[in-house]
Computed example of a mutant assay.
Amino acid sequence: MSDDAENRKETTPKVRKTTAEWMQQLTAEQFYVTRQSGTERPFTGPYWDNNLIGRYDCVCCNAPLFMSDTKFDAGCGWPSFFEAVHPNAIRELQDQSHGMIRTEIRCQQCDAHLGHVFPDGPAPTGLRYCINGHAMNFVHGGQQPAEAGNDDEKSA
């Protein structure tokens, strides 16, 4: 059964929508950030100062991204995390915009721009995922998603 769960996860289809469909689903700020690789101004977006327990999901496709126990105050004005919910939740791309070389973070499921990752975070990873609040929804009390292959163990 664990092989079946793993195969389902690997073959989950990507979320693909037209620009018009994204515009209808998202607010103007969410569309700007996630579909046009925008950045909200620091200390203005949702969740930068959220201290509740839960999970942060992609605003576009509801894929789980980060857990609140990996969130920390980096003082930068954006929600910051030191680890994604699982390695396959996000993908990294080189970003050479604005005269800098950075690592962009996108949702693996729908390709939404989330923010950037930097190597100046806390232990245990040393990473700082600096995420636009408008790219996420907060699920109060949301649980860590089950990993592929562990479905039987979680339900036992």
Rank of each mutant, 00 (worst) to 15 (best):
Gly75Ser: 05
Gly75Val: 05
Gly75Lys: 06
Gly75Gln: 07
Gly75Glu: 05
Cys76Arg: 09
Cys76Thr: 15
Cys76Ser: 14
Gly77His: 09
Gly77Phe: 10
Trp78Glu: 08
Trp78Leu: 11
Trp78Ile: 10
Pro79Lys: 11
Pro79Glu: 07
Pro79Met: 10
Pro79Gly: 09
Ser80Arg: 07
Ser80Ile: 04
Phe81His: 09
Phe81Lys: 06
Phe81Trp: 05
Phe82Leu: 00
Phe82Gln: 01
Phe82Val: 00
Glu83Asn: 11
Ala84Arg: 00
Val85Tyr: 06
His86Phe: 11
His86Lys: 14
His86Ile: 00
Asn88Gly: 14
Asn88Thr: 13
Asn88Phe: 02
Ala89Tyr: 06
Ala89Gly: 05
Ala89Thr: 04
Ile90Asn: 03
Ile90Tyr: 09
Arg91Ala: 00
Glu92His: 13
Glu92Lys: 13
Glu92Gly: 00
Glu92Trp: 01
Glu92Gln: 12
Glu92Met: 05
Leu93Trp: 01
Gln94Ala: 09
Gln94Thr: 15
Gln94Phe: 01
Gln94Arg: 14
Asp95Lys: 07
Gln96Met: 08
Gln96Thr: 15
Gln96Trp: 00
His98Met: 09
His98Trp: 15
His98Val: 01
His98Gly: 03
Gly99Arg: 09
Gly99Asp: 05
Gly99Ser: 06
Met100Gln: 12
Met100Cys: 07
Met100Thr: 10
Met100Glu: 09
Met100Asn: 06
Met100Leu: 14
Ile101Arg: 14
Ile101Gln: 12
Ile101His: 13
Arg102Asp: 04
Thr103Asn: 11
Thr103Ile: 15
Thr103Trp: 12
Thr103Phe: 12
Thr103Met: 13
Thr103Glu: 11
Thr103Arg: 13
Glu104Ile: 02
Glu104Phe: 06
Glu104Val: 04
Glu104Asp: 08
Ile105Asp: 00
Ile105Lys: 01
Arg106His: 10
Arg106Phe: 01
Arg106Ser: 09
Cys107Leu: 12
Cys107Ser: 12
Cys107Thr: 12
Cys107Asn: 10
Cys107Pro: 13
Gln108Ser: 14
Gln108Leu: 00
Gln108Cys: 04
Gln108Ile: 00
Gln108Val: 00
Gln109Leu: 13
Gln109Ile: 02
Gln109Met: 10
Cys110Thr: 08
Cys110Arg: 08
Asp111Leu: 02
Asp111Met: 03
Asp111Val: 02
Ala112His: 04
Ala112Ile: 03
His113Asn: 06
His113Glu: 03
His113Phe: 10
Leu114Tyr: 04
Leu114Ser: 01
Gly115Ser: 07
Gly115Met: 03
Gly115Trp: 02
His116Asp: 02
Val117His: 03
Phe118Tyr: 12
Phe118Asn: 03
Phe118Cys: 04
Phe118Ala: 03
Pro119Asn: 11
Pro119Gly: 05
Pro119Cys: 12
Asp120Tyr: 13
Asp120Met: 12
Gly121Ala: 11
Gly121His: 09
Gly121Pro: 08
Pro122Ser: 08
Pro122Thr: 10
Pro122Ala: 06
Pro122Gln: 08
Ala123Lys: 15
Ala123Asp: 14
Ala123Met: 08
Pro124Phe: 05
Pro124Asn: 03
Thr125His: 07
Thr125Tyr: 07
Gly126Phe: 09
Gly126His: 10
Gly126Ala: 05
Leu127Tyr: 02
Leu127Lys: 15
Leu127Thr: 00
Leu127Val: 00
Leu127Asn: 08
Arg128Gln: 07
Arg128Asp: 02
Arg128Ala: 11
Arg128Trp: 08
Tyr129Trp: 03
Tyr129Pro: 13
Tyr129Gln: 11
Cys130His: 13
Cys130Tyr: 04
Ile131Asn: 03
Ile131Gly: 00
